[in-house]
Computed example of a mutant assay.
Amino acid sequence: MKTYRMTVRGMTCTGCEQHVARALGAIGAKLMDVSFQRGEAVFALPEDTDVDMARQAVQNAHYEPGDIFRLFLG
């Protein structure tokens, strides 16, 4: 699994967080931390999942995906 942080614009409440988390979960994301207050989603993707799928999933959920950064934890 690779961990990423993506900025997400358009989230205004915890319901928005749940929508984004569901969209990311649908593409196989795990260990999600979605925050409307920080305007970001942190998530892990399986090695074989293209990170652009995460951007598309968020956009399909009617939010605006921004920059995506790979996080190196540990």
Rank of each mutant, 00 (worst) to 15 (best):
M1H: 10
K2H: 02
T3H: 09
Y4S: 07
M6I: 14
V8N: 05
V8K: 05
V8M: 04
R9Y: 10
R9P: 00
G10H: 10
T12P: 01
C13L: 13
T14Q: 15
C16P: 01
E17Y: 01
Q18T: 12
Q18K: 13
V20D: 08
V20T: 06
L24E: 03
L24V: 02
L24Q: 02
G25V: 08
G25H: 10
A26S: 15
I27L: 14
A29W: 08
K30G: 00
K30N: 09
L31V: 00
D33E: 15
D33G: 05
D33A: 14
V34P: 03
S35P: 09
S35W: 06
F36K: 04
F36N: 07
Q37W: 12
G39T: 01
E40P: 00
A41L: 03
L45Y: 02
E47F: 09
E47T: 11
E47M: 11
D48W: 03
T49R: 14
D50Y: 00
D50N: 13
V51S: 03
D52K: 05
R55K: 10
R55F: 03
Q56W: 00
A57Q: 02
Q59F: 07
N60T: 11
N60C: 00
A61Q: 06
A61E: 02
F69L: 15
L71D: 12
L73N: 14
G74Y: 11
